[in-house]
Structures are given as C-alpha cells and as structure tokens.
C-alpha cells in the first residue's frame, strides 16, 4: 500500500491540498486499484495558514484499515507551499524510498536543508514544481475542511499540477489517468512535464 500525505496551508490552500489526493486516487481507481482519500480534523484546519495534512492511500489489494484517519508511515509527501518546510518536519515518519514533491520556483537542492538527516536518508528523490505559476487560480474555501459543499470541479487549480508532478516522480499512476481525472487538463500535463527531479 502506498500512503500519500499532502501538506498545505489552512483555508487558503485547503481545497488544493485535498484536490491533489482526490485527483491521484481517482486516477488510480480508474486503473483498477483500491483507494482512499480523506481529511482529518487533527490539525485544526479552520485557522488561516496553519499547516494542514491531507491523506490518500492507493493499494493493489483491499485496504483494511478503514478507521485510521492518519498516514503514520507515508511513502509520498507533497508540499503545496514551500515555506511550511521551514517550520515543521514534513517528512516525519517516512518509509525508505520515499519521494518529496514541493510547490516552489526554487531548485530541489535548496529545500533539502529543511529535511533532518534522519528523514533524509529515507528519501529516494526530491522534486519541485512551480504549480502556482502553472495554475494561479486558488479557490479559497471558507466553509472549512469538514466536507461541506464543493461545487467547483476537482483539480481545477494548482492541485492538478501537483498531482501531475507526483505521478511523474513516483510512477504511481499513468499520465493519461491523471489527465483524465483533473478538471484542468493543461495544468496536470504541464505539472507532469515540467517537474524538476533530483535523485538522491
């Protein structure tokens, strides 16, 4: 089972972080895999700019732990705002061979200094993508993180570019599946193509 944790800023990028998980799981589901995508209220996500986690799980077999609402040992980390890494260890608990994908204009080497040595040895690759430059529209969702109504399409903003980048780095799902799952097809395609990868 592959566990994905996406870090995003509260309220401002709440929907985008959720979209990364939803696009990847929908793409994997259409390829015939078993998936879960969920939020957790543990980070108190109603506060603007607080660091929030969104989760997804993708597996070839049936996922049995349906009552654990947190990925304790993730394999893929997404960060939709690079500044989060300066304040918190986003890679906490990662498995050996994990990948880290960050939304920033900087190079992957510049952001590695915010990963402590204990987690750095488990990283397989670090990648950066200028997702905000590709898809600057962000839907600010003041209704909070508890579901509520989400009338806008899934994967309309920078979440689509991030999902494309994660697919390219990890090889988790095919490119065509991601493009089909995201509403903003161009952003997902550019995210897949323009991601800067550094293998460790």
């Amino acid at each position: 089972m592959i566990e994905i944790t996406v870090w995003c800023t509260g309220v401002i990028q709440d929907k985008e972080g959720r979209d990364v998980c939803l696009v990847l799981t929908e793409a994997a589901f259409n390829e015939g895999k078993f998936t879960q995508a969920f939020d957790n209220y543990v980070d108190l996500p109603d506060r603007i700019n607080v660091q929030v986690r969104k989760y997804a799980r993708i597996s070839d077999t049936v996922i049995e732990n349906v009552f654990e609402y947190e990925n304790h040992k993730p394999n893929i980390i997404g960060v939709t705002e690079a500044t989060i890494m300066k304040g918190i260890n986003v890679c906490y608990g990662i498995q050996p061979g994990s990948v880290l994908v960050i939304n920033t204009t900087k190079d992957p080497e510049e952001l590695l200094k915010y990963v402590p040595a204990k987690q750095k040895k488990n990283l397989k690759a670090v990648a950066t993508i200028d997702a905000l430059g590709i898809a600057p529209e962000q839907l600010i969702d003041y209704s909070g993180s508890e579901g509520a109504e989400d009338a806008s399409a899934i994967g309309g903003g920078l979440g689509a570019a991030m999902a494309g980048a994660i697919a390219a780095v990890s090889g988790l799902v095919k490119k065509e599946s991601v493009l089909a799952a995201a509403a903003n097809r161009t952003a997902a395609k550019r995210g897949y193509d323009e991601v800067k990868i550094k293998q460790l």
Partner: peptide, 20 residues
C-alpha cells in the same frame, strides 16, 4: 520567509499523543 536563514522555530517531530 524563505529568503532568511533563521527566525522560525523548527518542529523536529510532530506533537502527538503517546499512543499515536
């Protein structure tokens, strides 16, 4: 904030209850 080296308290570990 990323233009500066310091100024942010870094959380090395997440704050969790013991059983988590």
């Amino acid at each position: 904030e990323l233009d500066f080296e310091d100024g942010v308290p870094f959380q090395d570990a997440l704050f969790l209850l013991p059983h988590v």
